[in-house]
C-alpha cells in the first residue's frame, strides 16, 4: 500500500482537518480525510478531477457542514464556531466569483463588508491588498475588462483583504496562460513567506508543485499520501513527481477494483 497519511497534531495550525468523511446520498465523496496546514506553510492538495477536492473545500468553507470528524481554522471549529473560524479564512474559488458589472474596488469593498469592515478601512485595506498583487493601477476598472490572470490576482487580493491566517486556493490557475499561472504562484508563495499565511493550494497540475512542498495526494475521496515531495518519489520508486502521481493514483484505482 502506497498511502502514508500523517495525522495532524497541532491545534494552532492554520488549518486542521481530522477524520472527515462526507456522503452525497449513496456516494462516498470523502473517506476519513486528515491534513494540516501550518501557519506560514504551503500544502499542495494534489488530485485528479473528481478526487474530492471541491467537496473538501465546501466543508472547510462551511458551504455545508461536516457530519464526521473535525475541521479547525486557527483552532476554531468550523461547525461549532463558524464566525471565528471563517474570519480567519480567505478563499479563491475554482470558478470566477467577481462581479463583472462592478469595478475592482467595488468588488473588494463588497467583500470587506461581508467581513464587517466599514467603508473607510475597507478602501485602505483594498488598496493595500491590490498593491501586493500588482493590481493597484486597475482600481477603477470594471472587472469584465480584466484578463483572466488579472481577475485571478484581484481574487487573491480579495481573499487577503481581511488578513486571514489561512488561505484556500481551489484550482486557482485553471484557464490561465503560463505567465499568469507563474505570477499567481509566485504571489502566493511570497505571501507564505512574508505574511505567515497558511496556504492550502488545490490543483491537479503536478508542475505547480515545487520540490520542497508538502503534498497531500487525494484520490477517490481518500488521502493516498501526505508528506514532502522527495518522500513521495521514494515511496513510489519514481524519478519525477508526474510518475509518482500516476503510480499512486493508478495503483489506488487498481486496488479499488
Amino acid at each position: 500500500m502506497l498511502s502514508v497519511p500523517k495525522g495532524p497534531t497541532e491545534q494552532t495550525d492554520a488549518l486542521l482537518v481530522r477524520g472527515v468523511s462526507h456522503r452525497f446520498g449513496a456516494m462516498l465523496a470523502l473517506d476519513d480525510v486528515s491534513l494540516a496546514v501550518p501557519r506560514g506553510g504551503l500544502v499542495v492538495l494534489l488530485g485528479p478531477n473528481g478526487a474530492g477536492k471541491s467537496t473538501l473545500f465546501a466543508l472547510i468553507t462551511r458551504l455545508y457542514d461536516n457530519v464526521t470528524g473535525e475541521i479547525r481554522i486557527l483552532g476554531h471549529d468550523v461547525r461549532r464556531q463558524p464566525a471565528a473560524a471563517l474570519q480567519q479564512l480567505g478563499v479563491v474559488f475554482q470558478s470566477r466569483s467577481l462581479d463583472a458589472d462592478l469595478t475592482v474596488l467595488q468588488n473588494l469593498a463588497y467583500h470587506a463588508a461581508l467581513h464587517g469592515i466599514g467603508r473607510g478601512p475597507a478602501r485602505r485595506k483594498a488598496l493595500d491588498a491590490l498593491a501586493k498583487v500588482g493590481m493597484d493601477d486597475r482600481v477603477g476598472a470594471k472587472v469584465r475588462t480584466l484578463s483572466g490572470g488579472q481577475a485571478r490576482r484581484v481574487e487573491i487580493a480579495r481573499a487577503l483583504l481581511h488578513d486571514p491566517a489561512c488561505l484556500l486556493l481551489d484550482e486557482a490557475t485553471v484557464g490561465l496562460d503560463v505567465a499568469s499561472r507563474e505570477a499567481a504562484l509566485a504571489i502566493v508563495r511570497g505571501l507564505v513567506k512574508e505574511r505567515g499565511v497558511g496556504v492550502l493550494w488545490a490543483t491537479h497540475l503536478v508542475d505547480e508543485v515545487a520540490d520542497g512542498d508538502h503534498v497531500v495526494l487525494l484520490h477517490e475521496g481518500r488521502v493516498r499520501f501526505s508528506g514532502p515531495v522527495p518522500d513521495l518519489l521514494e515511496l513510489a520508486h519514481a524519478q519525477t513527481l508526474r510518475d509518482a502521481y500516476m503510480r499512486v493514483t493508478v495503483h489506488a484505482s487498481a486496488e479499488a477494483l
Binding site: A112, G116, I117, E194
Partner: peptide
C-alpha cells in the same frame, strides 16, 4: 513570519457594515 487578525467579536457596527454593503451592492 507575519501578522493576522485573531477572532474578532462581530459587533453591531460590523453587522451594520455587512448589511449596508450587501444592500449597496
Amino acid at each position: 513570519t507575519g501578522t493576522h487578525a485573531t477572532a474578532q467579536r462581530l459587533g453591531a457596527a460590523s453587522y451594520l457594515a455587512c448589511f449596508s454593503g450587501i444592500v449597496w451592492r
